[in-house]
């Protein structure tokens, strides 16, 4: 159990918490990876980067003013959307391969560091639980990520074209 307001303005680093956090977990998170098993109101408020994984219910106003980073929320009941402030973010299933492996890795580390039975249950029944995760991503951030990906692909292409063996 963690008191209110944790991980305020964190830049990098990782935190794994077996238990439930209070209000404003990961407020202004700008780069940390955090896993927790439930949260209070205003989780991920003003978040600008990093990853937040909530393996349980959240309070009201999730992701208010969140402009960067990604959150994954285990939504077993299916009512997460009501608790989320969708002003800046978009909700969707975890489908992208990179996303799935990232989430799996984070929960895996959570298990490693905390021996959480919950993490164990999720990982052993992964196929069953994966569809119950919701990915929360700010629209603006998604756009920037896509642009960065595109640039990266272009760069690789150019590099590939520049590769010595392809030169004549």
């Amino acid at each position: 159990m963690i008191q209110t307001i944790t991980l305020e303005r964190v830049f990098r680093g990782e935190v794994y918490i077996q238990g439930v956090a209070g209000e404003r977990f990961c407020v202004r998170n700008s780069g940390a990876k955090a896993v927790v098993e439930g949260s209070g109101d205003h989780c991920c408020e003003y978040m600008t980067g990093g990853r937040t994984v909530v393996l349980g219910t959240t309070g009201r106003n999730f992701a208010a003013g969140m402009s960067g980073g990604i959150a994954y929320v285990l939504d077993e009941v299916g009512d997460f959307e009501y608790y989320c402030n969708t002003g800046l973010v978009e909700l969707g299933p975890v489908e992208d391969k990179a996303d799935i492996s990232e989430l799996q890795e984070l929960i895996g580390k959570h298990l490693l560091y905390t021996q959480s039975p919950l993490a164990n249950k999720l990982l052993t029944n992964w196929e069953e639980f994966l569809p119950k995760f919701v990915k929360v991503i700010p629209l603006e951030y998604k756009k920037v990520l896509n642009e960065m990906k595109l640039k990266e692909v272009k760069r690789k292409l150019e590099l590939a074209e520049d590769a010595p063996d392809r030169r004549e």
Binding site: M1, I2, Q3, T4, I5, T6, L7, E8, R9, V10, F11, R12, G13, V15, A32, Y113
Partner: peptide
């Protein structure tokens, strides 16, 4: 107590068995 692990830097790992008060990991730098 409050601010456990505040402004921690890279290279320092803290593990807590028990509860924490407000501001856990505030301003964690790396």
């Amino acid at each position: 107590g409050q601010s456990f692990g505040a402004f921690l830097v890279k290279g320092v790992s803290f593990k807590l068995e028990g509860d924490s008060n407000d501001y856990l990991g505030k301003g964690l730098s790396r």
